[in-house]
Design a protein around this nucleic acid. Structure first.
Lengths: 198, 198
DNA sequence: TTAAAATTGACCGGTAGTCAGTCATTTAAA
DNA sequence: TTTAAATGACTGACTACCGGTCAATTTTAA
């Protein structure tokens, strides 16, 4: 027998070691050779841990998104009002500190649109489900506390999906100048309608 | 002097001649040689009319989207209620007859996320602006007719962007089974709130 | 020592994009 | 009317390069 390396861990290590490279250049202008050199391993070894170039981005986003979720969870728990929680949820789309993940997430979306892969779809679906549940719970909580109207729950998916939409729009066009402002306007107005007047 | 061809028209002709190829195979699994063969011209000629493979998709979507807009405009004009108009607006995201354009639009979004190009951003921004104005007008009309509450107008961007979001979600995950149902639920519920009770 | 596991980079097939040359048509001089 | 010059359109062989493979080599535990 020989040493059995922790394949899962090494995959993560390699992915993270070239995170900056992907962030700066984007997947298009990156060669596997460069990635291998940066990771300090041979080109062939890359393929021992990844199916292809896209798979590396997948791993990076996977790791970063998980870390991001933990931070986000903590932040949201410390907030009181439903509106604040929902707004906090959307900060990902404009926060300076999430810029790197946002850039890589963008690449990931692009990949998953053209090279759909069973695992990626599964991952994205899982993320989507989690976020949506999270989101739905926040709204449900608001309803239970008598803050929101009952049928607000039916808006959960829509409001959740609104985030993805504003992201795609802000990245692909120059029509949305201030993402935060746009989000605030939407959420504030929506709350004018769904908040229960006492 | 020699022959002078209508470069703009020829660009369109070439693009449309290989529309089916892009629809069936997707940009990843297509070579310029195949495209040239399908178009019945030499490989070098492709580069006389297009910057690269992506530019061909851009042209196809450009043409198809314009045609689509005209049809959509007609349909919306024939509708009466604001709610129906808005729902009609979103049919693009699930309609069987728009399946082809939707597929190509998906490729286009993917391209514009990773290879941003001045022209593409301009095109997308223009589209986005047009659709948004259209959308805003529909809502404004509803307000003027006393159907909708005044501040509904502030929701325009959000509801508009919701469409993009549901598209990305439905394409990239398996969480949205029935796009039409999801859209209807969101719009119906939203209207419960923003419609003026008489 | 040994054998399995891990690593490697030379190599291969294939593709995007280039470019030197050809072709077809128009213009204008004779 | 003829023909030579001019030029835009077109072409496909060619190049540079890249993703991915694999036979050979190194590493490591037993």
């Amino acid at each position: 027998m020989a040493i059995i390396v922790d394949k899962v861990q090494k995959r993560k290590d390699i992915a993270l070691s070239c995170k900056g490279l992907f962030f700066q250049n984007g997947i298009k202008d990156l060669t596997i050779s460069e990635v291998a050199k940066t990771a300090g391993i041979g080109k062939g070894t890359i393929y021992e841990y990844f199916k292809n170039k896209e798979d590396i981005v997948f791993e990076i986003v996977n790791i970063l998104l998980l870390e991001h979720d933990i931070r986000k969870n903590e932040r949201i728990e410390n907030l009181n009002s439903t509106k604040e929680k929902i707004k906090e949820f959307f900060t990902f789309f404009y926060n300076e500190e999430d810029a790197e993940l946002r850039e890589l997430y963008k690449e990931f979306i692009s990949i998953s649109l053209t090279t759909p892969n069973e695992e990626m779809i599964e991952f994205q679906s899982q993320c989507s489900k989690n976020y949506f549940n999270w989101f739905e719970n926040i709204i449900q909580e608001g309803i239970d506390r008598g803050e929101l109207a009952l049928s607000s729950k039916n808006l959960a998916r829509g409001v959740f999906v609104f985030g993805e939409g504003i992201f795609i729009s802000s990245v692909g066009t120059n029509t949305i100048v201030d993402v935060k402002e746009e989000i605030d306007k939407f959420v504030d107005t929506l709350f004018e309608f769904i908040e229960v007047k006492r």
